[in-house]
Write a protein that binds this DNA or RNA. Structure first.
Lengths: 315, 315
DNA sequence: GCTACTTTCGTAAGCCCTTACATAAAACCT
DNA sequence: AGGTTTTATGTAAGGGCTTACGAAAGTAGC
């Protein structure tokens, strides 16, 4: 496997780390033997914690060393079978399994000191030969992943990349079917289609565009995957409505792109405020509206049964 | 597990690496899912190699990615079951299992490209946040362990440390028993005690010291663990003999320390050459003599049956 | 004082690698 | 050609961790 990992790029990080760890664990086993200690590397974290302080419970040890309680339970059983530990119920709480070093365990802890010192020194010496600090790097990565998991990092990157590939264009008659289908999809999934829906979706030209409104379509890979309308009401107010994004295309920022475009258009047309109606059941949607700057208002009459929240954005 | 690893020192390197690798693998699985790819992280190395070049055999792939052939065999079976691969016997050699990407596999390889690019970018970006280079450090450690395994590093350190604790002292009557026992131990293990042995071991004072010879004793932890004699023969020649080291105390450089001391003493006493007799069966001993500077000679009469090699060092 | 939730821990099973062993085909060696 | 060694691969089992699940003890709300 000469330069395999240099070709894979960073993708194989997990696999590579595992190989390194397996290898080091194998060596550790041989080292225990060299020192005449009948001791398995996997026991080390548990044993070490107990040699610092006796009498802890399974769960305490597990959280201390970052293993599952099951793993600790198995290791403790192993160590006890080998005579290094004794398990006792101590306090009032009889669920708890308090673990103590036995005489043999205590003696072994002392004998292992010497070995630990040598291994530590050997590793420090090896580390001095390297120009990159493995120890520091591991600590940094643990912290890094703690702060923001890899998954989220990739997710954000993907979203940014894909959102850059989304195009928001003006409505054309060819998008009539998509406009209807995308809206019907979510409306009938969560609610049921109402009269006002049929009116707008079946006759967008007559009900939305001719009164002075606009419709925008989000394209991804040539396909219409999101739509949103800007409605002009007879009283001169403007409404953001009929926003719909295909579930297939979620996570590409499409809602945000459509929302921004509608707001921009409303400003262009001289609107001073933009309102919308939604339902608190649709949490991601309501969240998006907040992010776009909308704030909750009350008291506007609504033609929709499903509306239980109204929001407004001042322009 | 707040600062656990900072307390253990480097001893827990293996365990810590494993945790990190498990974690990253878990994240990788989630990332495959995010991209809608029904794909397991463990498949990656095999799949990657095959997407570079089809039709390789199990063993080829294994050596390329550094897994056992068994692991590759299992992964290939999994991938084939999921329809990504096809196994075929191709050439004349019917033992070989040539593995090819299926149509689905080829399509998946293309789809995965995008994901790999994002993951790579995310990792590069994360890496840019760190001050220590994990990637570089891993590569360095792989190379470091390749060159000299951890075990050997520790072994050398242990030897150096323990050898520093070994004291070589002049013979005293209290060491008579040790002198006899240590020699009898190896002689009767590999050969059988001869008349000349009994003479020297039972009466060291009369047979070795009074004629002008010396005996040195290596002490470790207060115990006599090695002995070696410098004999003065009636013809004025000097011999290194009766070297014995306790098996319990091997790997502490004791033979070398005793040999050096005998040579030093011989020089002090004005000897111009030092010879010894041994048996080629005792490879570590003969090796040691070479390291001390002795070279093979022939033709000297010997009182010992077991002698089949004679060596000499000019002073 | 009863019921429902929470905590602690263990067993069973699974995952991903390994080693040990088995089998068949090929290669090598008189 | 016949026997031995090497090579290619697979199966079974094990090692070290995990998750899923369950039992028992403790805690809390009425």
């Amino acid at each position: 496997m000469p330069d395999f990992y240099s070709r894979t790029g960073k993708m194989a990080l997990g696999s590579r780390l595992r190989r390194l760890s397996d290898r080091i664990t194998d060596e550790a086993a041989a080292i225990y033997q060299l020192y005449g200690n009948d001791f398995q590397p996997r026991w080390f974290p548990v044993f070490y914690v107990l040699s610092e302080q006796d009498g802890r419970t399974i769960t305490e040890i597990a959280s201390e060393i970052g293993h599952s309680h099951v793993s600790v339970s198995q290791i403790v059983k192993d160590l006890a079978r080998n005579g290094y530990l004794e398990e006792r119920a101590v306090s009032g709480d009889r669920r708890k399994n308090h673990v103590f070093l036995s005489e043999l365990g205590r003696a072994t802890a002392v004998r292992l000191q010497e070995q630990f010192r040598d291994v530590n020194d050997a590793l420090e010496a090896a580390m001095a030969e390297t120009s990159y600090n493995l120890w520091g790097a591991i600590a940094e990565w643990e912290h890094l992943l703690e702060r923001k998991p890899l998954l989220r990092r990739v997710q954000e990157l993907k979203k940014a990349r894909e959102s850059a590939e989304v195009q928001v264009v003006d409505y054309q008659p060819e998008y009539a079917a998509a406009f209807r289908a995308l809206n019907e999809e979510w409306i009938s999934k969560y609610f049921r289609m109402e009269a006002a829906d049929y009116a707008a979706l079946d006759h967008p030209d007559e009900k939305i565009l001719q009164p002075g409104g606009h419709i925008f379509v989000a394209l991804y890979g040539g396909e219409a995957v999101g739509v949103c309308a800007l409605l002009k009401h007879t009283d001169g107010t403007w409404e953001l409505a009929k926003m719909a994004v295909s579930p297939k295309a979620q996570g590409k920022n499409i809602g945000w792109l459509l929302g921004r475009r509608v707001i921009e258009k409303a400003r262009e047309l001289g609107a001073t405020a933009l309102f919308l109606e939604s339902n608190t059941m649709l949490k991601p949607a309501v969240n998006l509206y907040y992010k776009l700057g909308f704030r909750k208002i009350t008291g506007r009459p609504s033609p929709y049964e499903r509306s239980n929240i109204q929001m407004e954005l001042e322009l």
